[in-house]
Amino acid sequence: MSFQEALNSGKFIVTAEVGPPKGTDIETLRHDIELLKGKVDALNVTDNQSAVMRICSLAICKIVMEHGAEPILQMTCRDRNRIGLQSDLLGADVLGIRNVLCMTGDHVLAGDHKGAKPVYDLESVQLLGAVDSLNNGKDMSGNDLRGGTHFFQGAVVTPEANPLAPQLAKFEKKIRAGARFFQTQAIYDIEKFKDFMEFARKFPVKVLAGFVILKSAGMANFLNKNVPGIRVPEDLIEELKAAGKEKALETGMDIAARHIRRLRDEKICDGIHIMAIGMEDKVPVIMQKAGLL
């Protein structure tokens, strides 16, 4: 069953992600793909994540497919203009890539080529529009394509954005531009996420709640201080503190598992997206703890 079919089947979906490495040694990446395939419904492949130059997402999506897993091509607007983006989308289609996640992308100043020219010829809403157009056999300029694309396109949303209202307005624009599924920024406050879902449920889109595993109270504080759109509530930080250094990661995974169970049991959203960021081996552990394996 494809990712799209699985989402539409009503099954509780799990996606995870792999980050292409910097350099051509992909042994670890292959290992992570092998570890996750068969357990998750699809694997996001990040696009020069944090604006750090790495192997392109497109090539690694193809590798993911070679391993028998289904990729979600992340595409940011930072590094390519509308010609480059559409061209890569056509290329992705002929390689058999079916899922694309459209994002604006971290600014080049976040990465390791700070002097690079940021492109942003399009942004996430317009990129979704471009995908929709290619799916309908036309490019952004209205030219006919000899063969259109077959994408299942998604986008991201930040339920903890502050202020929230402009973010929700953009969420609606993304839906109107053709987004059919959403993966959220990491969430840690289920009550607040429920409020977001109450809004999101008004629209015919699938929502996968984002998870970033908390390794320690220090990490939680770091996220709160530095990462836009992430808010770890105080009681979880206390829980991690109380666990002590040795048990903090275990506790972080327990928290994730507990939240995942709740999302699934109360049918709050359609699935989850786990961003393991280097701890891919923990994804099956969390899934097991949450009763998903």
């Binding site: 971290d106 942003y120 942004e123 996430s124 809403v125 954005a161 624009k173 836009p228």
Partner: peptide, 29 residues
């Protein structure tokens, strides 16, 4: 907006400010 984007704030808005610098108020907010 440092990204010059046209349809609302990106995911980098933190407390109404920009991911590029906390000195920059988010244009879309």
């Amino acid at each position: 907006c440092p990204k010059g984007i046209l349809n609302g704030p990106c995911g980098g808005t933190k407390d109404g400010h920009c991911e590029v610098s906390a000195e920059i108020p988010c244009a879309w907010v």
